[in-house]
Simulated scan of single mutants.
Amino acid sequence: MSDSDFEILDERFSSCIRLSAQVERLYTGCHWAEGPVYVPAGRYLLWSDIPNNRVLRWDETSNAVSVFLQPAQFANGHTLDRQGRVVRCEHGSRSVTRTEHDGTVATLVSHYKGKRLNSPNDVIVKSDGSVWFTDPTYGIDTDYEGHAAEPEIGACNVCCLDSQTGECDVVADDFVRPNGLAFSPDEQSIYIVDSGVTHLSGGPRHIRKFELSPGCELRGGQVFASCESGMFDGLRVDRQGRLWAGAADGVHCYDPDGTLLGKVKTPEPVANVEFGGPQRNQLFICGTTSLLTVRLPVSGARTI
């Protein structure tokens, strides 16, 4: 381990970082920072402070942080669709919503087969417009991250909302607690975290990789990587297909072949990450209480 903010475990990681770069703290004061999304049209980053029931906004032009939305339905994960609209997972409403360009909010999905979802956690949108999200029970387990309630579905699933039919389908039902998810740059694969160790002793703390078929169908599901420091939570993919995943000791970077290349070391556990900035080479990191950032010589995969 070096004295820098990086730990190189494979020489290939050297091309992903600059040892002179430092992890900077942009803001602190959150109770549980999560769900960052960079909005290029406005040059700002949104992220959730779930227990405080608010969404915060960091302005790239002024470095100022302000409250973007409060109350915020205990929002968690965010993403952009291909039209640049913000799609949000809400623990409080137990739904996935979309904020239109005029500011109105539309509910995309709140039920599966007539039963309320658990508490949508993280979300991504495919180029065909389909909305993929995870639905663990974290937001209904207690009142800390939402409203305590009994689950109606009786399982924690990975779901897909078909953009053509508007139907919500379960695409994977063998997770203990599905969490973060990300497509490969070519959308041939999807990576999904299972953080079931939070609810099951010795439970999963890994990332699984599935192959995508046309429509809302998955194949495979083998374990891609296991976490040896806490557990994985949110993740993002760069243009070369490397995974950047939050863990207890920082952000872990994996080659597409499954090799752990190295780590971005942080002063607190990481929940989620996002690539942003004009060149998408600024890695934003949601620590437990803080929003952190570091600049890299690699760029995040394009999402819009």
Rank of each mutant, 00 (worst) to 15 (best):
S127G: 04
R205M: 00
R205Q: 05
A245T: 01
Q240P: 08
A248E: 10
L261E: 10
T79I: 15
H206D: 10
S4R: 03
L56C: 08
Q279G: 08
S66M: 10
T99M: 07
P278Q: 07
C89V: 13
S213V: 09
L45W: 14
L218H: 01
A271R: 00
I50W: 03
D186M: 13
S95P: 05
G196Y: 06
V55W: 12
V39T: 04
S110I: 02
L9R: 08
S66C: 12
R205F: 03
G92F: 15
A33H: 01
P51V: 06
V223Y: 02
S20W: 06
R208F: 09
H78Q: 14
S110Y: 02
D3Y: 13
E187N: 10
C286D: 03
D257K: 13
G42M: 10
V39W: 04
A64H: 15
A182P: 04
A148M: 08
R85E: 11
S163D: 08
R295W: 13
D135I: 00
Y138D: 03
G215S: 13
S213A: 06
V197F: 13
R208K: 09
A271V: 02
R54Q: 15
R57P: 09
F68G: 04
S189M: 11
A75G: 04
P120C: 05
N52Q: 13
F133G: 07
S4Q: 03
P185N: 06
Q83Y: 14
G234W: 01
S130L: 10
R280N: 09
R219Y: 10
E60V: 08
R94K: 14
C286A: 08
K126I: 12
G154R: 04
P267Q: 06
A72T: 00
G77S: 13
D173V: 00
W58C: 07
R208T: 08
W244K: 06
W244E: 05
Y44Q: 07
N76C: 07
V273E: 02
S110F: 04
R25N: 06
R85Y: 08
C159E: 04
K126A: 12
R18H: 05
V96E: 08
R280M: 12
V55N: 06
D3G: 11
A245K: 01
E100A: 14
Y27S: 11
P51M: 07
P51E: 00
N76F: 08
I140D: 00
C168N: 09
A33Q: 09
I124A: 07
K263V: 11
G180I: 04
D128I: 11
L26Q: 11
G300M: 15
D5I: 11
I153Y: 07
L26W: 09
T288G: 05
R219I: 02
A301W: 10
P178V: 15
D173N: 02
G154P: 11
T137P: 00
V86C: 09
P136M: 09
I140F: 00
G262Q: 12
S66R: 14
P151V: 02
E274R: 02
T134W: 08
G202C: 03
V193L: 03
R295Q: 09
S163Y: 13
F74S: 05
C286G: 07
A155C: 05
S127I: 09
V273F: 03
N53R: 07
V298C: 10
T259N: 10
